[in-house]
Write a protein that binds this DNA or RNA. Structure first.
Lengths: 347, 347
DNA sequence: CTGAAAGCGCTTACAG
DNA sequence: CTGAAAGCGCTTACAG
């Protein structure tokens, strides 16, 4: 006895509208073959009863759950919350709901876990964020389970039905070229998390820019990070404590660039006078460091929305099975100049 | 024909184990009254068939969906991703899954929307993040819908069945007292988002500390922000451009404190020499600003885990209805000294 | 254009 | 300790 009347079900709507439940179902799912008058009557009845279809029942009986699962592992706070915001907006557009799952790819059986969760939950689609989008076991198991899925910035698109990428290599190239344009020749690079496809692409862009400018790649100027502040600080310090330190550093994301700024400050170096540092992402942190970061803006929210679009298209077109034409979406970028990079100081 | 054999269902397990489906159900749900031998046989059969119970069926037939919905609106990137991380860990412990929803509280009907989603999805529990935890219509509708829910740091706990709080007032008091201890008397405050209970509590702590020290509250030293960097920068600049600017500023979170640092720099002030600034949260940004922020560490991940614990307890105890003894959990804090606050410079 | 029946894969009383 | 039947609230063929 909670005071509220019992929740209306489809039979109640059918009774009130004087039709069969099947007709109610047709109206609610916008199926054809219902007279307009009947349709209106059903809608009115549903409204009068404040009818809300039950997801479990719909999911069990039909082939749509209106559920999308988003799997992630490591993801910077900025990336996760921006991506999730975009995904939620677009899920809302289509009446979908978003289940989030964190999956440790370093522990075995990740593929089974991801595919198992997707199957048990009957989700209509799966979003794989990096590094899961790039984890072959995960991708294969999910692909085998026959649920539509979209890979976010995968390094390898051989299994992909849907994927989404950004011109990471070109953006990294442009950023590096920008540093070269400022006169720098000893340009260090802090690579991103090795499991992320973007890390590889950004590194390649860096190499390409150096090559074009006729600057030999110096392995001592390349270090590895994990996309977080602390690893950026450590990698930056190591680079700067080397025998022939760089005059500029390109960190594969803003968090690591922020860490590198801290490292430089710890060594008594002024940024950008003594050392130029650039990042990648244009996340919030980029405007808070001192000096604020010159970086590349990546349209994370748009990418998230695009990934849901892709999934919905795939779901609609092939009625829930993965087979179907491959789809992808490509996103651009912008170079954002702030204060963390400056012309090479003449010695 | 996807190559994989059709997914096993409970009947398959029952047949292979030579028992009824009811017995399988009992074993899988760890119910009593099954002989150990039978139990083992069922477990073996389930394993052999790689049986995975279907959430929709279980949810429709029974009273548990193993789904928890987390609703949020504005939330800093740091807060969201930390809270979500904690919630996911604890959901995993109990075999639960997390649905995330963003709900704009400024648009009407928020309560209906939240309660409606919870009902349609048949979630077993609801987590209300601020400012939703503090929105009376939302709280009332959710309470009326009879689903267990937990409010995170609500300002008002009159309707609360479960809630969780932190000593925001005491932490703010301690932080302000710390600034007073450094010799500051003109201490500004940038309030947080007005819809968040924490904003009020932190302001009260600030007031209490001033009162205890015999410092009159100066309304011109109090400004409002929205918990984001930009609003902190704006509020900070306004404070500093006043006729009698503060010598120290307590911003109600780190993002706003970072903004205030930018504002100070824009006005040519050195932090902490000319101006001390402290934040709240100890988020990542606190170690990246220059100087790094003196702040208060809030155990966001622990709080998230605690909120799931509370929910699970409520679900277990009263079989899915909200009624039952109220529960709450209280969390502590730590003052974290970094470089953004310094003794008042003698003029 | 509309409906009666069966079924999705589980759990719930109830009976023994 | 175990099971046969009914039912959760929808959608799916199928029939008209």
């Amino acid at each position: 006895m909670d005071g509220s009347t019992r929740r209306a079900k489809i039979d109640d709507v059918a009774r009130l509208a004087g039709v069969s439940t099947k007709t109610v179902s047709r109206v609610l799912n916008n199926e054809p073959n219902v007279r307009e008058a009947t349709r209106a009557r059903v809608r009115a009845a549903a409204k009068a009863l404040n009818y809300m279809p039950d997801f479990s029942a719909r999911s069990l009986a039909g082939q749509k759950s209106y559920l999308i699962a988003m799997f992630y592992d490591t993801a910077s706070q900025a990336y996760l919350s921006q991506f999730q915001a975009g995904a939620l907006v677009q899920c809302g557009e289509y009446g979908y709901h978003l289940i989030v799952e964190r999956c440790d790819v370093s522990s075995p059986g990740a593929g089974q876990r991801v595919a198992g969760i997707a199957a048990r939950l009957r989700v209509d689609g799966v979003i794989l964020l990096p590094p899961l989008s790039n984890h072959s076991e995960v991708v294969q198991k999910v692909a085998a389970s026959d649920v539509p899925f979209v890979q976010i910035v995968p390094a390898d698109v051989s299994v992909a039905a849907c994927y989404l990428n950004m011109d990471d290599a070109r953006a990294a190239d442009e950023l590096t070229t920008y540093l070269i344009g400022l006169g720098h020749r000893r340009i260090g690079h802090i690579k991103g998390h090795p499991a992320h496809g973007a890390s590889v692409q950004r590194y390649q862009g860096y190499c390409a820019a150096l090559a074009r400018a006729g600057i030999a790649l110096d392995a001592l100027l390349v270090n590895e990070g994990l996309f977080d502040i602390r690893s950026g600080e450590k990698a930056g310090r190591e680079l700067l404590e080397g025998a022939h330190p760089p005059t500029a550093i390109f960190a594969a994301n803003d968090d690591m660039a922020a860490g590198a700024i801290n490292a430089a400050r710890g060594l008594g170096l002024d940024v950008p006078t003594d050392l130029s540092i650039v990042g990648f992402d244009d996340s919030q942190i980029a405007s808070v460091t001192y000096p604020p970061l010159t970086t590349v803006r990546q349209p994370i929210e748009d990418m998230a929305r695009g990934s849901v679009d892709l999934l919905i298209e795939a779901i609609k077109e092939n009625g829930g099975t993965r087979a179907g034409k491959p789809r992808f979406r490509h996103f651009g970028f912008d170079l954002v100049e702030r204060g963390s990079a400056a012309p090479l100081r003449k010695p």
